Computed example of a mutant assay.
Amino acid sequence: MAVAPIIVYPPLGTGGRRVTARGQILGLAYSDADVLEFLRRAGLPDAEALLDEPSFVQWRGGRAHHYEAA
């Protein structure tokens, strides 16, 4: 099974989720808007529709779109 190119890691104890693209850290997201900004900066300006596409974004640990501390 192929790994999605974008990975949103589990919420940290302090809140926020680390986001990577093909193994490179893009930043720490506290909302979907943050994730979309990281993807825009990485050259994917129309990524909003892809946030719930498992072949594009893998949400690890916790619920998708949930950023509060674990």
Rank of each mutant, 00 (worst) to 15 (best):
A21K: 15
P54E: 13
G61H: 11
V57T: 12
V57H: 05
E68R: 13
G27I: 03
R18N: 07
E53G: 02
D34S: 00
Y67L: 00
G43L: 12
G62P: 03
P5V: 04
A4G: 06
A47M: 11
D46Y: 10
F38N: 08
Q58S: 15
V35N: 01
H65T: 10
V35M: 03
H66E: 06
R40K: 15
V8M: 03
A64P: 14
F38G: 04
L51D: 06
D46W: 06
P10V: 05
R18F: 02
A21E: 14
A42L: 14
E37R: 14
H65G: 07
G61E: 02
E48G: 14
R40C: 12
I25V: 14
R63A: 12
P45T: 08
L51E: 01
L39I: 09
L50T: 03
Q58N: 15
P11Y: 01
F56S: 13
R22V: 09
E48S: 08
G61F: 07
A4N: 11
G15N: 08
G15A: 15
P11V: 03
G43T: 12
D46I: 05
M1I: 10
W59M: 03
P10H: 04
Q24I: 06
F38L: 12
D52Q: 06
A49C: 08
Q24Y: 07
G43Y: 12
R18V: 11
R40M: 12
P45E: 11
T14H: 10
R60A: 14
I6P: 04
L26M: 04
Q24H: 13
